[in-house]
Amino acid sequence: MIIASIDYFDYDENVLLTKTGGIGLEKQDKQQVTRRQFLVYTLMGVGGFMLSSITLPNLRFAADPVLQPKEGSDLINTNLKVDELTNEPKKVEFSFKQKDGWYEKETTQFAWVYKDENGEIIAHSPVCKHLGCNVEWNSSENHPNMYFCPCHKGLYYKDGENVPNTPPRAPLDRYDYEIRDGYLYLSTRAKEVKG
């Protein structure tokens, strides 16, 4: 038969078996990729490509909010003349259009603003650093001249420093400010005070 004289290839062993005169077997180069391996690699490659082209766009889509560049905080006109500020913290409301994805809405925030001894303007965020209620200036009879949070009786001194042994564990955040034509402009986001 003709078949008996033909060299054949053992696909699992990656060895070319040659019958030479019916004696002995010749081994070929081990590096050679077998047909089976080639097909496995090709299928894995194509399968991997298909799988990733299905999943990756979706994952990037879902993670978009995390990867968006951080928006700078806009400065908003409070319509308050800086001359009107005193040593006493004053509740200053300001409104702006807040962008939430495709949804824009007029939002009102407020700040506690005063001038310190050096004439420097301090604008505190009213959000309590304990659990996020709004603090009020001088609203507790037992604790005059302090910021008081009605939710869990958190207290802050006038400079925003949290009173020890009350719930808050950090000083009140501060808004950035700017003075333009005598009017006070405040940032939309308050910043944490370090230290």
Binding site: P65, V66, K70, D100, G101, W102, Y103
Partner: peptide, 17 residues
Amino acid sequence: DLLKTLLAGDEHIIGAQ
């Protein structure tokens, strides 16, 4: 922070997203 943004869809706002 990442986790919160990923869940809420925005860094600061709990809203439409």
